[in-house]
Design a protein around this nucleic acid. Sequence first.
DNA 1: TTGTTTTTGCAAGTCATTTGCAACTAGAGT
DNA 2: ACTCTAGTTGCAAATGACTTGCAAAAACAA
Lengths: 180, 180
Amino acid sequence: MSSSPGIGGASLLGSLETCRGDPADVKEGTGHVHGKRRLIELTEQLRAKSRKVTGPRQKILDVLRTNRHPATIREVFAQMPRGDCDLVTVYRSMHLLEGMGMVKRFDFGDGAARFELVNGRDGGHHHHLICTSCDRIVELEDCFAQEMEEAVAARNGFKSVTHKLEFFGVCPKCQTGHRV
Amino acid sequence: MSSSPGIGGASLLGSLETCRGDPADVKEGTGHVHGKRRLIELTEQLRAKSRKVTGPRQKILDVLRTNRHPATIREVFAQMPRGDCDLVTVYRSMHLLEGMGMVKRFDFGDGAARFELVNGRDGGHHHHLICTSCDRIVELEDCFAQEMEEAVAARNGFKSVTHKLEFFGVCPKCQTGHRV
DNA sequence: TTGTTTTTGCAAGTCATTTGCAACTAGAGT
DNA sequence: ACTCTAGTTGCAAATGACTTGCAAAAACAA
Ligand SMILES: [Mn+2]
Ligand SMILES: [Mn+2]
Ligand SMILES: [Zn+2]
Ligand SMILES: [Zn+2]
């Protein structure tokens, strides 16, 4: 019997032909790229750094790819077909992907780290608005802190300055006559 | 023998007379208030909310009062006279103080939360610049994100919006010919 | 197919923070 | 000054996110 390419016998990636022209590949406006093509790009990145394209990794990337908001390790794990891989593998894979710059880590203050697939070679730096009542997350396109970052760096003689910024508040749906 | 006001026999607070005019009470320029007077104000806040002014709490407030940068629970604990109270008590006290708005919590991304005494009834909202190489912390006076906070809140219909913002980079002393 | 390197699963460990509970006080009342 | 009680504390144990050790399993180049 031949070795199956992924876990469960079927590869998540179809043929290149199948992917070409996939209407879901580009979600206009946002610049985000979804669909199989994206997944292939991702696995290529793995190969390029001589990391193995394994079943668990493909599944994890596929889950991340479909998430519109940063997800915790447990959330990613929960979204994978049951028993597909160990929780620890998700931790390890995420660490690898983060190190490769393929995913970005976010911290919303609750105990668990959240991860989002990086789109575009620029990094797609952006921030979030989180509802403290229902945990709804709003993706804030672009960043408005670049200037102050440069100012802070220059004023204090720091190099390679980056920043972490998140907003918290009460979303419209949670404002029904409660605390102001 | 009379009951000692604090732990260890001596109260951290002297008499009001002793405190009045303490030259260390006001550190001009920053608006931060230090010295015994500040400590008395703090204990008053506890009494005002019918929380008990206990030995451990006085010690913890005293340690926080002398810290120029946000400190972790363990750091605060380490700065207290040996065996003065349990680590758990520091956790619980910090939680209480945070709830009362007397201390503010910060998260620099390393596993442990950091706390800083809130100065001024306004809250003294500000941010930090942390060296990713030596952990040096720079206190950034004032906040430059208020406008964008309002914009983000308005644009998304959120109320009571706040933000968390910290900068990370390599400080001058750590820039000796290393990575740029 | 084989051999070498990387990955994975599972168990166990680390570390910050929380919780259960009985013993203990600060502060109010007497 | 003495009593009472709600609020506190210490100690042990629990929780939860995340990491690590190790042998079995899989990827992929030769
Ligand atoms: Mn996002
Ligand atoms: Mn500060
Ligand atoms: Zn930004
Ligand atoms: Zn701010």
